[in-house]
Design a binder for these strands. Structure first.
Lengths: 243, 243
DNA sequence: ATAGAAAATTGATCTATGTCACGTAAAACC
DNA sequence: GGTTTTACGTGACATAGATCAATTTTCTAT
């Protein structure tokens, strides 16, 4: 499955980059006074490492600074599904922390990542002190819940083509480079074809074929990990199309 | 879709039946002193009514006393999926309340139901007063999140037959009547075939055929809504079987 | 640079499930 | 109680996607 990850650098976290919205752990925890008391360590992980495994005790909560993480769930027969992609600025591991349960999925590093880690004791302390931070955490999970309900609906009702289009559109924001005068966009995919397949609940072969169809329809062109989308509008339109 | 539901009886809630675990709202809110301050009203709803609709403002949180509720999400094209079945003792509507969002799904009454309702202001007050109740609510959503992740995995990786077996096994606890000396069980299904189909993300025709296969394999026998399972172990085994 | 391993693509099937159509049974309604 | 819906079952068929096997391409590591 992969190698158990280990921290490469351990330094004190000065200011955490991200915005102040509740997707970011730092946004969640930021609250003037408290943020000093919070123990935080920065860590780096390489591709293929696992930050934690399904079934592990939850030692704390993570916030992704850079890179890309997949949360994957596996059943007894070895079937698995990527339940969530964690993009920079987002927290992960907080579900288990809040539920007071073991981790329900494995956190896999898809792209060399930097993250900060807050040990559970420290965060527990913070939450007990500042109710408003606790409320923000609660909101975070409640929104996570809505998001996966949406993913569930998408996956059970839409064909692979639409799900792939949807994924591309969701990666666009963070991974698109040059957006020229028309709405052409070039995305540098942070995922392999295998990971693409896992992320939308299908097989690599099907991804290859679906890519070919998208190219035939001039909606997107794939060269390795570089995806050129001639018109975001057209792709969006295709995604939204009836039936 | 159905008729907007309206309360039939409105009385003060004395003691709420359920256990004290966190699945029950009353379990969640129960905390000696506070439970008196809590405004609660009992209501009854008939089959086909909707307790709230997707997009409605969240006016409060519900706890199901008796009956069965389905939470259904619908997309712009009218595709829908039942995201959760709410069984007696469980809370619903709390996600929207905690996220401070509009309802993300419609609550449909599948079986004549009794429930109690706590208006949001009253619950907000309670939560601000007693942090431990707030923590229990947070745990509740965090667990809901794990549960739907599990459903997502099940649905994306397992065929209809297994998903149906799984649903039967999960209904067993509450709806089985006589369990004889061997482990034969008779379940009185609280769902129609259509609802069965929606609950596991398939079509009524497929349900009919899957039922026939289960009967051929002597795993379960369906007469209307009455399901006879000769051996729970065999059904469980079939559900867990490789590939 | 070269060899070996892993990933991606492609073609050829196979199959589960969706769709459509029709008949029957059950339930709702007057 | 009879009529009109609505649900259910079943057959025939269509198809998206899985699976299997064979190449080819791309990475990795020496």
């Amino acid at each position: 499955m992969g190698i158990e990850g280990k921290p490469i650098t351990v330094t004190k976290c000065g200011t955490c980059g991200g915005g102040k919205d509740d997707s970011s752990l730092c946004g969640l925890a930021r609250s003037g006074l408290e943020s000093d008391r919070l123990q935080r360590t920065h860590r780096s992980y390489d591709i293929g490492q696992n930050i934690y495994l399904e079934g592990d005790n939850c030692e704390g909560v993570y916030c992704l600074k850079a890179g890309l993480i997949a949360i994957r769930k596996t059943d007894v027969n070895g079937n698995s599904a990527v339940v969530r992609l964690v993009q920079p600025g987002e927290a992960f591991g907080h579900r288990s922390f809040l539920a007071n349960e073991r981790h329900a999925g494995t956190a896999e590093v898809l792209v060399k990542s930097k993250l900060c880690f807050i040990p559970r004791a420290s965060l527990e302390h913070l939450l007990s002190q500042s109710p408003d931070v606790a409320i923000r955490f609660t909101r975070r999970v409640a929104r996570d819940l809505r998001e996966i309900e949406e993913l569930y609906l998408l996956t059970t009702t839409q064909p692979v083509r639409k799900r792939l289009a949807h994924l591309l559109l969701s990666l666009k924001t963070r991974y698109s480079s040059n957006e020229s005068e028309d709405d052409e966009v070039v995305i540098e995919l942070p995922l392999s074809r295998q990971e693409l397949a896992a992320a939308i609940g299908t097989r690599p072969e099907t991804i290859a074929r679906t890519i070919k169809k998208l190219e035939e329809d001039q909606l997107a062109f794939f060269k390795g990990r570089q995806v050129t989308i001639p018109s975001l509008d057209l792709l969006q339109e295709d995604f939204e199309a009836e039936a």
